[in-house]
Write a protein that binds this DNA or RNA. Sequence first.
DNA 1: GGAGCCAACTTGTTCAGACAAGTGATTGCC
DNA 2: GGCAATCACTTGTCTGAACAAGTTGGCTCC
Lengths: 248, 248
Amino acid sequence: MGRVRYLEIAEALRAAILSGDYPVGAQLPSESDLAARWSASRGTVRQAVATLASEGLIGSRQGARRIVLRQERRHSFGELNSFAQWAEGVGHEVRSRFLSRTRRPATAEEAERLALAPGTEILAVLRLRLLDGEPTMVERTAYADWVAAAVEAMEPDCRSVMDGLAAGSAIVAHYGEHLIDALAAGSEDARLLGIRRGSPLLRQRHVSATNTGRPIEWSDDRYLAGSVTFSVSNSAVATPLERHAGDR
Amino acid sequence: MGRVRYLEIAEALRAAILSGDYPVGAQLPSESDLAARWSASRGTVRQAVATLASEGLIGSRQGARRIVLRQERRHSFGELNSFAQWAEGVGHEVRSRFLSRTRRPATAEEAERLALAPGTEILAVLRLRLLDGEPTMVERTAYADWVAAAVEAMEPDCRSVMDGLAAGSAIVAHYGEHLIDALAAGSEDARLLGIRRGSPLLRQRHVSATNTGRPIEWSDDRYLAGSVTFSVSNSAVATPLERHAGDR
DNA sequence: GGAGCCAACTTGTTCAGACAAGTGATTGCC
DNA sequence: GGCAATCACTTGTCTGAACAAGTTGGCTCC
């Protein structure tokens, strides 16, 4: 039980939706009903339902009762930023190995993404990730200079670098930005994943940052086609997903 | 401008960030400063900054001033849901043609996604989209029975079906869900896009719904690799993006 | 000079009340 | 029967106040 009232209410409503008490399309109780039932103010209830709305679970229109849009469990921030945390949360077995770990000057793009001076030395890591024993993803990550030492100290078969940083150095990711596109497998990708060159891959490039906005890592993850799908829900009031033109 | 105070404030702050008055990493004025400057209550200011936070522009931690995370313009809901609206917004020329438009019973998945009884007759549409004259995307859409007539009435070279529905029938999308993955081009995809079979494609499947939660369309859009990138920003408090395991 | 403490500042949470604006159903008129 | 006005209900916006909790920088003391 959190001591935070609105999260308590949000959690109870979320549980009620997931359990089917309020099926998709059903109306939620009115704000005043909920306020009375929880003996909270209307503002607190509004904060609770706003949380669920931002998760895409419910929708609302002025004048009409809130309705249930989806009936699904929500992933946490950690499950999106850490491949290992996600895989374990969904019940898959994950293995991975550092194939190479070298220090080198940052490329122009890496310096830009990591907010470092051009040419600063970063730690470049190449890893192959296995999901339930199958090669699934090739990960090429550039770690900022100030976390490089901590990453280098980790075991070669370390399951989650981000978990390790959080545990060992109290460095925790709070913000992320993700770029998703498709591309053909290069020769290294193909060799590692055991597929032919030119096979389709789903690429997720992402940067993670601390709560002060300081970038930690910039990563290029390439998934075997068909192995994973990304999903986003949006609404007229909250549009987290964007489309950009590529270079071609 | 808008008679809604908090949107006014949010807009002004957004403009200040985009124009560089507050560069990335800079601190925003405190809530009380802003409240005084706009002669608004602190609650209204908080609603304004919450808007920017949900857009990923700024971050906040209890006790410390809010900081600027990004410096980018935000897309609207319409620009994500309508290919034509997006393309025009970023200054590209878009063309498209209905290659086929046929009524047929919904498949199991289509009925599920559109919340229709199994076997209900839907309108299946196949379209090829050109960006600046280049074939870029193949779109296969199933329109729910109750909008089928309105879609059939449209011109064969209609640029935006969603715009047409909004203008002609006052049917407006308010909610959406998007599934993104990669796959190899099938023979029809390859012929339409002018590429070889097996070439990588970026697939975006999405369902659009009205403000009452009623699904309008379920679409399977396949982009040429390299032509577009999707982006999402997230934080520990707002995680709109999810990863799911595929069938393989 | 360095370590630890403290005080000012800032964001997070909650409350109670008020009015604006949109929705849905009922009512009454033609 | 159909149509329009009305009304109760519900969500959206805004205010002002209070206390909790985290951050930061300066100060004192050693």
